[in-house]
Write a protein that binds this DNA or RNA. Structure first.
Lengths: 154, 154
DNA sequence: ATAAGTGCAAAGGATTTGCGATGGG
DNA sequence: CCCATCGCAAATCCTTTGCACTTAT
């Protein structure tokens, strides 16, 4: 027996389609950068991305890396995070679970904090409303940074 | 009638004493920088501090500003905050109420968010424990950034 | 074909550093 | 008086930009 009906919920749009939707070209550089984020995952600096590309024998200039990190940011594919080390870091949104960061103030190590749930939702929903009323802002996202000492530094 | 007993709870240590405790000199530059934070308050960049000093006719070199912002940070008098605008900002801890930040992603305007209370305490207390168990970190502080659109940009 | 994207090298902006001069304890 | 601190200018680090060449559509 053959099942003819296959439920496909939220089939993710291909990167090519995403670029197309933004009237941007799906160039090799851009694909390669996204590949790095999909493989290496979290919070990479421009230099990190550049090094990973070199390691993979993909020749992409550092300027192109910067330009495309910014583009991907504006397209909503990456988000920018900052750990106070003097450079910007980027994370991919789609493949990574939404999370926050725990930063060692001694050595700079950064750990992702995933899996905060309902309680967080409720807490932030309340704050969001408060800001929208008190300050007149529309809040569309937030980020929590925790600071402390990692196992080795404590 | 004279009241002989005056209750003085938590008399704040003078800046001079704080410097002394850290074996650092209470120089005019340092006093002037602290004065700026006490008067102008929130999230100033090194350049901001430098400009305010000039406006007050205090001649302090920009290098000295940077060196002392870092010193005051390490002494726990200032904390560093980052709004993604390519420069670091600093806030004074003692005189300012603990607060978070609401950032307009369009124009970069930053608003302080004060007065989150019990609920926040509880919520973050739970997370703190979770991290200490799961990751082995000691968490000593945290910071929440909210992103959205300000009244003018929405 | 052609406008968008790229690489390179130079420019820009923020922060740090070297060093001789200064002044707080 | 002496070492920490300062001012200045040069150095460094991250990021952006100008321009001629290449390429995805």
């Amino acid at each position: 027996m053959i099942i003819f009906f296959i439920e496909v919920k939220d089939l993710p749009e291909s990167w090519k389609d995403v670029f197309h939707r933004f009237n941007k070209k799906a160039t090799p550089s851009r694909r390669a950068i996204l590949e790095v984020f999909e493989e290496k995952g979290q919070h990479l600096s421009a230099e990190d991305v550049y090094e990973h590309l070199r390691a993979k024998k993909k020749k992409v200039g550092i300027a192109t890396v910067y330009r495309n990190l910014d583009l991907l940011l504006r397209m909503g594919i990456l988000r920018k995070v900052n750990f106070g080390d003097g450079r910007e870091h980027y994370e991919i949104c789609r493949t990574a679970q939404f999370h926050h960061h725990l930063i060692c103030t001694q050595c700079g190590q950064v750990v992702d904090c995933e899996g905060m749930t309902q309680e967080e939702e409720q807490f932030l929903q309340r704050l969001r409303k408060e800001f929208e009323q008190k300050q007149g802002f529309v809040v569309h996202s937030y980020h929590i940074y925790f600071y402390g000492l990692c196992p080795r530094c404590r």
